[in-house]
């Protein structure tokens, strides 16, 4: 009986598929993701995409909300510097992202949980690579534990 239960847990763990929320800007990264599909480039099915006009639209609060909601990872992807359809949305965003990432990692959040990329409309291949990397990183980290709603504090003592 006990053995069966253990097996079950391991089984579940083995089957665990992370869920990753991706905010993609409409003009570059979303188009890049479409191109990956059109080119039939395969990548892990773990991301859930929210289309936004520009990476500049991403309020860091959105990312925190995703973590609280239990997403195991968050990816934000925009246009390369200079490519922004809105001229400088990605530059404005970049500062926000830098500060958020610094802050969360200073607090002790795993760096792999929240990631950022620039993917152009022509980079279907890169999009697939980014998603693959983020998925692998998150898989290595295991299910999200930090900032998730209704979870007990982690066990490490300060």
């Amino acid at each position: 009986m006990i053995e069966a239960k253990v097996e079950n847990t391991i089984g579940r763990h083995k089957d665990w598929q992370p869920k990753i929320l991706a905010f993609l800007c409409n003009w570059c990264s979303y188009a890049g993701a479409d191109l990956a599909g059109v080119s039939r480039i395969q990548y892990p099915p773990n991301i859930r995409v929210v289309r936004i006009p520009c990476s500049g639209r991403v309020n860091p609060i959105f990312i925190l909300k995703c973590l609280q909601n239990g997403f195991d990872g968050v990816l934000v992807s925009g246009c390369h510097p200079g490519d922004c359809h809105y001229i400088s949305g990605n530059y404005v965003a970049r500062r926000k992202f830098a500060v958020l990432k610094t802050l969360l990692e200073f607090m002790g959040l795993e760096p792999g949980r929240v990631q950022f990329s620039w993917v152009s409309a022509g980079e279907g291949e890169k999009f697939a690579q980014v998603v693959t990397k983020v998925t692998e990183d998150v898989k290595k980290l295991g299910p999200a534990r930090k900032l998730v709603r209704n979870l007990e504090p982690t066990e490490t003592k300060y």
Binding site: Y86, G89, K96
Partner: peptide
């Protein structure tokens, strides 16, 4: 309609129609 203003606003005073804070929050929740 890029929304850089909305993402920068601390008081939730400026918002982007079609991609509002609410709409994005609901989608990711």
């Amino acid at each position: 309609g890029c929304g850089a203003c909305a993402a920068s606003c601390r008081s939730g005073a400026i918002n982007l129609k079609g991609f509002t804070d609410d709409q994005i929050f609901e989608a990711v929740s």
